[in-house]
């Protein structure tokens, strides 16, 4: 029973416009994501540079 619940409806099975649900500006704004990935990149560069300086200091 309840076979259909086991079949995951896949987006591509549905015509694109019928499935479209993005409503307004706010929902699709990715400002925070942008800021978050920049912070992430900054963290990686800082740690990398830290150990590189240690390498140089021990040369």
């Amino acid at each position: 029973m309840a076979k259909s619940t086991n079949l995951v409806p896949h987006k591509k099975d549905v015509p694109a416009k019928a499935a479209s649900r993005t409503s307004g500006e706010t929902e699709s704004s990715l400002k925070g994501t942008f800021a978050a990935v920049l912070l992430l990149g900054g963290f990686i560069i800082l740690t990398w540079a830290g150990v590189f300086l240690l390498f140089l200091a021990r040369q």
């Binding site: 929902e27 990715l30 994501t33």
Partner: peptide, 25 residues
């Protein structure tokens, strides 16, 4: 990094759909 971006974006979209405001709301 694509994965990191994608996850942040998933969180942000879900949060904003729930009415979150601001950069990191």
């Amino acid at each position: 990094l694509m994965t990191a971006f994608s996850l942040f974006a998933t969180f942000e979209q879900a949060g904003r759909a729930l009415g979150a405001k601001g950069l990191f709301g």
